[in-house]
Nucleic acid binder design. Sequence first.
DNA 1: ATAGGGTTAG
Length: 618
Amino acid sequence: MQNKIAKLVVNDSPKPLQRVGEEKFISLLRSCETCTRLHQIQAHIVTHGLQGNDYVTPSFITACARLGRMGHARRVFDTTAQPNGSTWNAMFRGFAHAGCPFDVVVFFAQMHRAGASPNCYTYPLVVKSCAQVNAVKEGEQVHCVVVKRGFKANAFVGTALIHMYSARGEVSVGDAYKVFGEMHEKNVFVWTAIITAYVACSDMVSARRLFDLSPQRDVVLWNVVVSGYIELGDMVAARALFDKMLDRDVMSWNTMLNGYACNGEVESFEKLFDEMPVRNVYSWNGLIGGYVRNGLFNEALESFKRMLMLVKQEGEEGDVVVVPNDYTVVAVLSACSKLGDLEMGKWVHVYADSIGYKGNLFVGNALIDMYAKCGVIEKALDVFDCLDVKDIITWNTTINGLATHGHAADALCLFERMKNAGEKPDGVTFIGILSACAHMGLVRDGFLHYQSMVDDYSIVPQIEHYGCMVDLLGRAGLIDQAVDFVRKMPMKPDAVIWAALLGACRMYKNVEIAELALQQLIELEPNNPANFVMLSNIYKDLGRWEDVARLKIAMRDTGFKKIPGCSVIGCNDNLVEFYSLDERHPETDCIYRALQGLTIQLRLHGYVPNLVDVAHGN
DNA sequence: ATAGGGTTAG
């Protein structure tokens, strides 16, 4: 019996036997998960004499690429005498997958020189890589090869070319359209590519015309056009198209949700969220992020809690179980910073640890900002130290956190560390640095940093930087120099600048400049009564009561009342807000007793409170 | 037998 089978196989020529071996190795390579295993398989391939085999080699290279071993793949490739098209393609795919589009372009030139023939799988990979590295000339050369070898009608190749030209901006959308026009047999992918190209250069008229002409429209194409209108802020047109859609998917709903959120239409996105048939994590992120974007931080936290409840209940009534992700965490943390809700912030920190945020810098940066804004600068620094990769945002957030919490000296130290670490400061960094100097009264250092910003880093000062400089000079009592700085600004000073000057005038009792500043402020923000109060306080300091009365009338005439400043403090899982001399809290007596105790302690340590400002509610 | 394309949020 066994003899019979052996005889049959032998008689059938040796080819099927080799084919069995090839197939075995291909399937082994496909399921290979570790490098050790890869090397074992490689050894077996060699003993079977199958190295350089037309079918096994591409699979081997693909397995290398999957395990991140492109160096090894390359050595194998270099020892392959006659690499076939699939072997070349496996190399291209590997480089592209590893994020090395440049190597793809270089390798394609090598393929061309070697006289090997690309096939229809080669071109999309190479064209896409040219687009990624902005290889304009090479991209056009590949396009020429495509035409010469008769691949321009291929839908895969065509979409890649259209995408490449559209990535070059509106000047090349004509080239993209030319590729599109020369293709017969266009499928929905090709139509989507060209319509996306017009959407990308904000030409919604052409995009819509092509959309109406398209013989086939799937949900992706509809979404592209809807998001095109949203990009231009035309929510009415977006909604009209959205309403016409027959089968909307979650992404269609999410696109609309985010569109409303970006355009400040809070009620619309709330309503849309309620109407959604299915919600995924993006939908929830859109809702929470939408609240944050529009300043509704409490609503953001409430929605987050709702989301967590859903996780606990394992998604009742058709709701898909939605687990918060890194983006959710970032949005929630920024709401915590804005509210000063440290307890929630800490809870989210633990949660972020549990989902392993360490790979995500956005989360790390948001944590630093949250702790800094909630006044726990030590914890902010802990998070900073724990991040092994830092970006410019990390440094800026921490420097600004230190600067705004009176740790100006530490902010300047960190700035030096930043430069030593090879991170290049940007305009935002210098806002932190200049304000740190302003708070410490370091006029000379402030000026040196300002000069260094312009000379060493070629940063053009923005209005915020001028604001910092006016503040720096003003706080130091150099009012005339501050005014000089304002006069020499290349742009029109804004309210922040005049308010900084007015504040300095208050400190140094300079009526003349204060009146000038107020005049400007009345023009810029006629409805802000705080400006009147500031000048009024200067008159008070000088005992000019008639002027105080005059201003009071002027202020009343604006019809706006100054909203009293209010503080918020987290207490037993709740946020309590209180005003100056507030007595609304049930435990008012106890609170004031504690405050009195603190005041006594402060005085014992030599602190002299500024009672004038307290009495005036500043 | 190997293997490619169009969309959404920081």
